[in-house]
């Protein structure tokens, strides 16, 4: 055997050592936890606001359904209210848009209006169909299906994480499906129409606006979840106190306990890197 240190990590020459020789340099290039991130508790808490406020959104949607089902809220009021919210959101969106966005994307206000008319016309035209769509299915099944779909909506929603399971289209479709399920349990076509338009606003338009708000006004990420959480909690409280308590404790768990948990789990992290890793192309 050759003297120590003269061994080289090459295959093309016979170095006079047996094939199962283990050099001192074995696993020298092993690196552990290279890309570990130091989390700060309060910033993680702030980031978790995205999750809690989406859950609040879904909760609000369900409460609105309950209200309509109990005839405490008329569909006309809801529709006018959501129209008002949509206009407000549109105005805010415009306000935050880059100056030459319209020129660059070649999208005129007329295009926006056309989209709105198409969507409204379709949901309006289809609402008689939606209303009777699940007539033959028992209400329990429909509620179970709705719960399942809303859960899928929450799970697959794009919270800004870069993960394989995130699928915006799946999340959105699940949300719309849930709204169709619920709409079919209500009394008139007006009800169905108002529910579906509210769902489109909550599940399609609102996340887009929320992301824009995040890039333009960082502060909104603290204020919004608080506001939405309070509104949702109060709304649920008016329906069922037990549900409200469960909801509030869950929100507190997500925004305070989960970040602490994540930070605590960091010390178990054991990521191994070495020359065998698939290279990442950096241009």
């Amino acid at each position: 055997m050759k003297e120590k240190g003269s061994w080289r990590k090459v295959l093309y020459e016979d170095q006079g050592v047996p094939d199962d020789y283990v050099d001192d340099s074995f696993l020298e290039e092993l690196r552990k936890n290279l890309y570990i991130r130091d989390y700060e508790y309060w910033s993680v808490v702030a980031e978790s606001g995205v999750v809690t406020q989406h859950i609040s959104c879904v909760a609000l949607f369900v409460v609105v359904f309950v209200y309509m089902d109990e005839n405490r809220l008329s569909p006309e009021t809801l529709f006018i209210f959501s129209l008002f919210c949509a206009l407000l959101g549109y105005y805010m969106n415009n306000f935050m848009e880059q100056r030459n966005f319209r020129i660059w994307s070649r999208r005129t206000r007329w295009d926006d209006l056309k989209t709105v008319i198409i969507i409204l016309a379709f949901s309006g035209g289809l609402s008689p169909v939606l209303m009777t769509l699940t007539d033959t299915i028992s209400t329990d099944t429909v509620y179970a299906m709705t719960a399942f779909m809303l859960l899928a909506n929450i799970l697959f929603h794009d919270y800004g994480a870069n993960a394989a399971m995130v699928s915006d289209s799946l999340s959105f479709n699940a949300g719309i499906f849930a709204s169709v399920c619920l709409a079919s349990r209500l009394e008139t076509t007006w009800h169905a129409f108002a529910t579906v338009t509210l769902a489109i606003e909550l599940f399609a338009l609102w996340p887009v606006l929320r992301r824009k708000l995040k890039t333009h006004y960082q502060r909104s990420q603290v204020a919004l979840p608080l506001l939405m959480g309070t509104v949702a909690s109060m709304a649920i409280w008016s329906v069922s106190i037990t549900c409200a308590i469960v909801f509030i404790s869950f929100q507190v768990f997500v925004s305070f306990a989960c970040p602490a948990w994540l930070l605590n789990m960091q010390r178990f992290k054991n990521n191994i890197h070495g020359p065998w890793d698939e290279a990442v192309i950096r241009s």
Partner: peptide, 11 residues
């Protein structure tokens, strides 16, 4: 088939 592969397999 190579030293790198050996390190990888051992781990």
């Amino acid at each position: 088939v190579s030293h790198t592969s050996k390190e990888n397999t051992v781990l």
